[in-house]
Amino acid sequence: MSSSKVYPDAASALRGIIRDGMTLCCGGFGLCGVPDKLIAALHDSGVRDLTVVSNNAGTDGEGLGLLLKSRQIRKMIASYVGENKEFERQYLAGELELEFNPQGTMAERVRAGGAGIYAFFTKVGAGTLVAEGKEARVVDGETYILETGIVADVSLVKAWKGDTEGNLIYRKTARNFNPNMATAGRITVAEVEELVEPGVLDPDGIHTPGIYVQRIIDGSPYDKKIEKRTLRKRQEGAHAVVA
């Protein structure tokens, strides 16, 4: 029983592994594929001074926006924080530390951290504010800057299906940063829409092998939010996009 990865709920899955000042990697893009149940439990725990690595910061009161509103985040590492007025306010008022990473650099830093790569050279951000204070190297006339891998105390991810061994399958674009974040946590906690017994998921279709996941919960039911509902009219052509 003690070796089981399965916890009854989000609060119990976080017990004993969260503390003030810790670094957290969090999956999700916009409001899509965000580990909302674990974030809500983090909110309820009252843990403070968090450094959070996540592409976005949710919207006001949704996703990580919940932790911003309650002032539990001290520093964000992110690529895009639009759609969140409270974030912008805290940052411009100097209440919140913010480190902007180009989105792909952030994804690769997390991938590298999870894969045991200390740092890598990339041309992304060379000659911009992102390069300030970073080692640069010129190879064949092209400037590359040194970016370090990211390892988190705890990673929080959201998947569609998971089994009790921690194997995960994501659905459509809700995959996004989740598989990368899952590898970068010293402890990774996953919430899934459907938790099944081993043998149910096709081993060939696993996106995140269970070795990366230490704790897992069945987070159902889910009420998934849409940030921008864009629709096409029935008579429009197959490729019509309206913006």
């Binding site: 924080v81 989105q103 992304v124 911009t128």
Partner: peptide, 10 residues
């Protein structure tokens, strides 16, 4: 304006 570069630099 503080929105971030998203994927533009990449």
């Amino acid at each position: 304006m503080v929105k971030g570069m998203g994927g533009a630099m990449d």
